[in-house]
Computed example of a mutant assay.
Amino acid sequence: MAETVFNGGTFAYELDGEPSAPALVLIHAGVATRRMWDPIVPGLAQNHRILHYDTRGFGDTATDDVHFSEVDDLLAVMGAAGIDRATLIGASRGGRIAIDAVVEHPDRFTGLVTVGSVPSGFPEVEMTERENELFDELDALLAAGDHTQLNRVEAELWAAGPTRDLIELEPAFLEQAYALNAANLPHLTETPKPVPLESPAYYRTVDIELPALIVVGEHDLSGELAATEYLLSTVPDSSGARFPDSAHLPSVERPDEFVRILNTWLESRQL
Protein backbone atom coordinates (compact mmCIF):
# COMPACT_ATOMS: atom_id res chain seq x y z
CA MET A 1 0.00 0.00 0.00
CA ALA A 2 1.16 3.51 -0.85
CA GLU A 3 -0.18 6.86 0.33
CA THR A 4 -0.47 10.38 -1.04
CA VAL A 5 -1.72 13.56 0.62
CA PHE A 6 -4.08 15.97 -1.11
CA ASN A 7 -6.46 18.66 0.19
CA GLY A 8 -6.70 17.39 3.74
CA GLY A 9 -6.91 13.73 2.79
CA THR A 10 -4.36 10.93 3.07
CA PHE A 11 -5.20 8.52 0.26
CA ALA A 12 -4.32 4.84 0.33
CA TYR A 13 -3.74 3.19 -3.03
CA GLU A 14 -2.19 0.13 -4.66
CA LEU A 15 -0.58 -0.55 -8.02
CA ASP A 16 -0.38 -3.87 -9.84
CA GLY A 17 0.74 -5.00 -13.28
CA GLU A 18 3.43 -3.73 -15.63
CA PRO A 19 4.01 0.04 -15.52
CA SER A 20 4.11 0.23 -19.34
CA ALA A 21 0.75 -1.54 -19.83
CA PRO A 22 -2.53 0.32 -20.50
CA ALA A 23 -3.89 1.66 -17.21
CA LEU A 24 -7.15 0.83 -15.45
CA VAL A 25 -8.31 2.83 -12.41
CA LEU A 26 -10.82 1.02 -10.18
CA ILE A 27 -13.14 3.10 -7.96
CA HIS A 28 -15.03 1.24 -5.26
CA ALA A 29 -18.69 1.34 -4.22
CA GLY A 30 -20.02 3.32 -1.26
CA VAL A 31 -20.64 0.10 0.72
CA ALA A 32 -17.08 -1.09 0.19
CA THR A 33 -13.41 -0.16 0.00
CA ARG A 34 -10.70 -0.81 -2.57
CA ARG A 35 -10.61 -4.36 -1.19
CA MET A 36 -13.75 -5.13 -3.23
CA TRP A 37 -11.50 -5.37 -6.30
CA ASP A 38 -9.02 -7.88 -4.82
CA PRO A 39 -10.60 -10.95 -6.47
CA ILE A 40 -10.46 -9.43 -9.97
CA VAL A 41 -7.11 -7.60 -9.91
CA PRO A 42 -5.00 -10.68 -10.83
CA GLY A 43 -7.16 -11.39 -13.87
CA LEU A 44 -6.84 -7.80 -15.09
CA ALA A 45 -3.19 -7.17 -14.21
CA GLN A 46 -1.91 -9.70 -16.75
CA ASN A 47 -2.36 -7.11 -19.51
CA HIS A 48 -2.90 -3.84 -17.62
CA ARG A 49 -1.49 -1.47 -15.04
CA ILE A 50 -4.04 -1.44 -12.20
CA LEU A 51 -4.60 1.41 -9.74
CA HIS A 52 -7.20 0.99 -7.03
CA TYR A 53 -7.58 3.35 -4.11
CA ASP A 54 -9.77 4.17 -1.14
CA THR A 55 -11.79 7.31 -1.79
CA ARG A 56 -11.92 10.10 0.78
CA GLY A 57 -13.29 8.85 4.10
CA PHE A 58 -13.32 5.15 3.16
CA GLY A 59 -11.10 2.20 4.07
CA ASP A 60 -7.53 3.26 4.76
CA THR A 61 -8.02 6.83 3.49
CA ALA A 62 -8.55 9.45 6.21
CA THR A 63 -9.70 13.03 5.76
CA ASP A 64 -10.07 16.37 7.46
CA ASP A 65 -13.47 18.04 7.35
CA VAL A 66 -12.84 19.99 4.15
CA HIS A 67 -14.76 20.85 1.00
CA PHE A 68 -13.53 18.59 -1.79
CA SER A 69 -14.05 17.38 -5.33
CA GLU A 70 -14.21 13.64 -5.96
CA VAL A 71 -12.85 14.24 -9.46
CA ASP A 72 -9.91 16.30 -8.17
CA ASP A 73 -9.19 13.55 -5.64
CA LEU A 74 -9.14 10.96 -8.43
CA LEU A 75 -6.76 13.02 -10.57
CA ALA A 76 -4.49 13.61 -7.57
CA VAL A 77 -4.21 9.88 -6.86
CA MET A 78 -3.58 9.17 -10.54
CA GLY A 79 -0.82 11.77 -10.51
CA ALA A 80 0.80 10.25 -7.43
CA ALA A 81 0.66 6.83 -9.11
CA GLY A 82 2.25 8.15 -12.30
CA ILE A 83 -0.79 7.47 -14.46
CA ASP A 84 -1.62 10.11 -17.05
CA ARG A 85 -4.49 8.40 -18.93
CA ALA A 86 -6.61 5.42 -18.02
CA THR A 87 -9.84 3.54 -18.46
CA LEU A 88 -12.06 4.15 -15.43
CA ILE A 89 -13.97 1.28 -13.83
CA GLY A 90 -16.38 2.39 -11.12
CA ALA A 91 -18.92 0.50 -9.02
CA SER A 92 -22.03 2.30 -7.76
CA ARG A 93 -20.83 5.60 -6.24
CA GLY A 94 -17.46 4.89 -7.84
CA GLY A 95 -19.16 4.81 -11.23
CA ARG A 96 -20.77 8.18 -10.56
CA ILE A 97 -17.32 9.60 -9.80
CA ALA A 98 -16.01 8.01 -13.01
CA ILE A 99 -18.80 9.53 -15.12
CA ASP A 100 -18.19 12.95 -13.56
CA ALA A 101 -14.48 12.64 -14.32
CA VAL A 102 -15.06 11.64 -17.94
CA VAL A 103 -17.41 14.54 -18.70
CA GLU A 104 -15.09 17.04 -16.99
CA HIS A 105 -11.74 15.75 -18.27
CA PRO A 106 -12.29 13.56 -21.37
CA ASP A 107 -8.66 13.95 -22.45
CA ARG A 108 -7.48 12.08 -19.35
CA PHE A 109 -9.42 8.88 -20.03
CA THR A 110 -9.58 6.17 -22.68
CA GLY A 111 -12.70 4.24 -21.65
CA LEU A 112 -15.48 4.05 -19.07
CA VAL A 113 -16.99 1.09 -17.21
CA THR A 114 -19.81 1.56 -14.71
CA VAL A 115 -21.35 -1.07 -12.43
CA GLY A 116 -24.79 -0.31 -11.02
CA SER A 117 -24.08 3.42 -11.23
CA VAL A 118 -26.32 6.49 -11.28
CA PRO A 119 -24.94 9.64 -12.95
CA SER A 120 -24.91 12.82 -10.89
CA GLY A 121 -28.14 14.80 -11.29
CA PHE A 122 -30.21 11.75 -12.26
CA PRO A 123 -33.89 12.27 -11.29
CA GLU A 124 -35.28 10.27 -8.39
CA VAL A 125 -37.00 7.06 -9.41
CA GLU A 126 -40.13 5.83 -7.66
CA MET A 127 -39.22 2.90 -5.46
CA THR A 128 -41.14 -0.35 -5.16
CA GLU A 129 -43.04 -1.17 -1.99
CA ARG A 130 -40.31 -3.57 -0.94
CA GLU A 131 -37.59 -0.98 -1.53
CA ASN A 132 -39.48 1.53 0.59
CA GLU A 133 -39.70 -1.02 3.40
CA LEU A 134 -35.97 -1.68 3.26
CA PHE A 135 -35.05 2.01 3.35
CA ASP A 136 -37.51 2.62 6.19
CA GLU A 137 -35.57 0.04 8.17
CA LEU A 138 -32.32 1.86 7.46
CA ASP A 139 -33.86 5.18 8.45
CA ALA A 140 -35.07 3.71 11.76
CA LEU A 141 -31.60 2.39 12.59
CA LEU A 142 -30.07 5.77 11.74
CA ALA A 143 -32.58 7.57 13.97
CA ALA A 144 -31.76 5.15 16.79
CA GLY A 145 -28.04 5.81 16.38
CA ASP A 146 -27.31 2.09 15.85
CA HIS A 147 -24.58 2.60 13.28
CA THR A 148 -23.15 -0.90 13.56
CA GLN A 149 -26.47 -2.58 12.76
CA LEU A 150 -27.20 0.07 10.13
CA ASN A 151 -23.90 -0.77 8.44
CA ARG A 152 -24.77 -4.47 8.47
CA VAL A 153 -28.32 -4.07 7.12
CA GLU A 154 -27.06 -1.66 4.47
CA ALA A 155 -24.59 -4.30 3.29
CA GLU A 156 -27.41 -6.85 3.11
CA LEU A 157 -29.62 -4.53 1.07
CA TRP A 158 -27.03 -3.90 -1.62
CA ALA A 159 -25.67 -7.46 -1.64
CA ALA A 160 -29.05 -9.15 -2.05
CA GLY A 161 -31.07 -6.40 -3.68
CA PRO A 162 -34.82 -6.01 -3.09
CA THR A 163 -35.88 -9.17 -4.93
CA ARG A 164 -33.73 -11.84 -3.25
CA ASP A 165 -33.66 -13.30 0.26
CA LEU A 166 -30.37 -13.50 2.15
CA ILE A 167 -30.63 -17.29 2.18
CA GLU A 168 -30.20 -17.22 -1.62
CA LEU A 169 -26.73 -15.72 -1.33
CA GLU A 170 -23.55 -17.72 -0.97
CA PRO A 171 -22.46 -17.38 2.69
CA ALA A 172 -18.90 -16.42 1.75
CA PHE A 173 -20.14 -13.58 -0.46
CA LEU A 174 -22.46 -12.24 2.24
CA GLU A 175 -19.64 -12.29 4.80
CA GLN A 176 -17.45 -10.46 2.31
CA ALA A 177 -20.14 -7.80 1.86
CA TYR A 178 -20.38 -7.35 5.63
CA ALA A 179 -16.61 -6.97 5.95
CA LEU A 180 -16.29 -4.52 3.08
CA ASN A 181 -18.86 -2.14 4.55
CA ALA A 182 -17.73 -2.60 8.17
CA ALA A 183 -14.26 -1.30 7.20
CA ASN A 184 -15.82 2.15 6.81
CA LEU A 185 -17.27 2.39 10.33
CA PRO A 186 -14.14 4.09 11.76
CA HIS A 187 -14.85 7.10 9.51
CA LEU A 188 -18.21 7.99 11.08
CA THR A 189 -16.79 11.10 12.75
CA GLU A 190 -15.34 12.48 9.51
CA THR A 191 -17.59 14.96 7.71
CA PRO A 192 -15.90 16.24 4.55
CA LYS A 193 -18.26 18.10 2.21
CA PRO A 194 -18.30 17.09 -1.46
CA VAL A 195 -18.64 19.87 -4.02
CA PRO A 196 -20.86 18.73 -6.93
CA LEU A 197 -20.25 19.50 -10.57
CA GLU A 198 -21.61 22.85 -11.70
CA SER A 199 -23.39 21.03 -14.52
CA PRO A 200 -24.39 17.48 -13.47
CA ALA A 201 -23.32 14.56 -15.64
CA TYR A 202 -26.97 13.59 -16.26
CA TYR A 203 -27.21 16.39 -18.81
CA ARG A 204 -23.86 15.60 -20.45
CA THR A 205 -23.74 11.84 -21.02
CA VAL A 206 -24.63 12.35 -24.68
CA ASP A 207 -21.29 14.13 -25.06
CA ILE A 208 -19.21 11.18 -23.81
CA GLU A 209 -17.13 10.10 -26.80
CA LEU A 210 -15.23 7.28 -25.08
CA PRO A 211 -16.22 3.63 -25.41
CA ALA A 212 -18.33 2.63 -22.42
CA LEU A 213 -19.42 -0.65 -20.86
CA ILE A 214 -22.51 -0.31 -18.65
CA VAL A 215 -22.88 -3.21 -16.19
CA VAL A 216 -25.76 -3.99 -13.85
CA GLY A 217 -27.07 -6.87 -11.78
CA GLU A 218 -30.57 -8.12 -12.56
CA HIS A 219 -31.56 -7.83 -8.87
CA ASP A 220 -30.30 -4.27 -8.33
CA LEU A 221 -32.59 -1.47 -7.14
CA SER A 222 -35.06 0.38 -9.35
CA GLY A 223 -32.99 3.57 -9.51
CA GLU A 224 -29.85 1.76 -10.59
CA LEU A 225 -31.73 -0.27 -13.20
CA ALA A 226 -33.34 2.90 -14.61
CA ALA A 227 -30.00 4.74 -14.66
CA THR A 228 -28.41 1.84 -16.53
CA GLU A 229 -31.02 2.07 -19.27
CA TYR A 230 -30.53 5.84 -19.42
CA LEU A 231 -26.77 5.50 -19.84
CA LEU A 232 -27.17 2.89 -22.55
CA SER A 233 -29.61 5.14 -24.41
CA THR A 234 -27.54 8.34 -24.18
CA VAL A 235 -23.83 7.43 -24.19
CA PRO A 236 -23.14 7.12 -27.94
CA ASP A 237 -20.56 4.31 -27.91
CA SER A 238 -21.96 2.16 -25.11
CA SER A 239 -22.71 -1.52 -24.68
CA GLY A 240 -24.28 -3.33 -21.76
CA ALA A 241 -23.69 -6.40 -19.62
CA ARG A 242 -26.40 -7.69 -17.32
CA PHE A 243 -25.73 -10.24 -14.57
CA PRO A 244 -28.87 -12.37 -14.02
CA ASP A 245 -27.67 -13.83 -10.71
CA SER A 246 -26.42 -10.71 -8.95
CA ALA A 247 -27.61 -7.41 -7.47
CA HIS A 248 -25.49 -4.34 -6.80
CA LEU A 249 -22.06 -6.00 -6.51
CA PRO A 250 -21.60 -8.37 -9.49
CA SER A 251 -17.81 -7.96 -9.54
CA VAL A 252 -17.71 -9.24 -5.94
CA GLU A 253 -20.41 -11.90 -6.23
CA ARG A 254 -19.35 -13.21 -9.66
CA PRO A 255 -15.70 -12.18 -10.05
CA ASP A 256 -14.68 -14.79 -12.65
CA GLU A 257 -17.57 -13.94 -14.95
CA PHE A 258 -16.96 -10.22 -14.41
CA VAL A 259 -13.29 -10.52 -15.38
CA ARG A 260 -14.16 -12.56 -18.46
CA ILE A 261 -16.70 -10.00 -19.70
CA LEU A 262 -14.49 -7.04 -18.86
CA ASN A 263 -11.36 -8.46 -20.48
CA THR A 264 -13.32 -9.36 -23.62
CA TRP A 265 -14.64 -5.81 -23.86
CA LEU A 266 -11.23 -4.23 -23.16
CA GLU A 267 -9.63 -6.38 -25.86
CA SER A 268 -12.37 -5.56 -28.37
CA ARG A 269 -11.79 -1.85 -27.77
CA GLN A 270 -8.00 -2.17 -27.69
CA LEU A 271 -7.89 -0.65 -24.21
Rank of each mutant, 00 (worst) to 15 (best):
Met1His: 07
Met1Gly: 08
Ala2Asp: 11
Gly9Thr: 15
Asp16Trp: 04
Gly17Ile: 04
Pro19Ile: 03
Pro22Phe: 08
Pro22Thr: 05
Pro22Val: 05
Val25Leu: 04
Ile27Lys: 09
His28Lys: 12
His28Cys: 13
Val31Pro: 07
Asp38Met: 13
Ile40Asp: 02
Ile40His: 03
Val41Asn: 06
Gly43Pro: 01
Leu44Asn: 00
Arg49Ala: 05
Asp54Gly: 05
Phe58Tyr: 14
Thr63Arg: 01
His67Leu: 13
Ser69Asp: 07
Glu70Trp: 11
Leu75Glu: 15
Ala76Tyr: 04
Arg85Met: 07
Ala86Cys: 09
Gly90Ser: 02
Gly90His: 00
Gly90Ile: 03
Ala91Gln: 10
Ser92Gln: 10
Arg93Leu: 15
Arg96Ala: 13
Ile97Lys: 02
Val103Tyr: 01
Glu104Trp: 00
Asp107Thr: 12
Arg108Trp: 00
Thr114Gly: 02
Val115Ser: 03
Val115Asp: 04
Gly116Ser: 00
Val118Gln: 11
Val118Met: 11
Val125Lys: 02
Met127Ser: 15
Leu134Cys: 04
Asp136Asn: 12
Glu137Cys: 04
Glu137Gly: 13
Asp139Ile: 12
Ala143Phe: 01
Asp146Thr: 03
Asp146Gly: 03
His147Ile: 12
Gln149Val: 08
Leu150Met: 15
Arg152Gly: 05
Val153His: 01
Glu156Phe: 09
Glu156Thr: 07
Leu157Ile: 12
Trp158Tyr: 15
Ala159Pro: 07
Arg164Leu: 10
Asp165Glu: 14
Ile167Asp: 13
Glu168Gln: 14
Glu170Gly: 09
Gln176Tyr: 06
Gln176Asn: 09
Ala182Met: 12
Ala183Trp: 14
Asn184Glu: 09
Leu185Val: 12
Leu188Tyr: 00
Thr189Trp: 11
Glu198Val: 13
Pro200Tyr: 09
Ala201Val: 03
Arg204Ile: 09
Thr205His: 09
Leu210Tyr: 06
Pro211Ile: 01
Pro211Val: 00
Ile214Asp: 06
Ser222His: 11
Gly223Ala: 05
Gly223Tyr: 04
Leu225Lys: 12
Leu225Ala: 04
Glu229Ile: 03
Tyr230His: 12
Leu231Phe: 03
Ser233Trp: 00
Ser238Leu: 01
Ser238Asn: 07
Ser239Glu: 14
Ser239Thr: 13
Gly240Leu: 06
Phe243His: 00
Pro244Lys: 10
Ser246Val: 11
His248Cys: 02
Val252Ser: 10
Asn263Ala: 11
Thr264Asp: 15
Trp265His: 06
Leu266Gln: 08
Leu271Gly: 10
Leu271Ile: 15
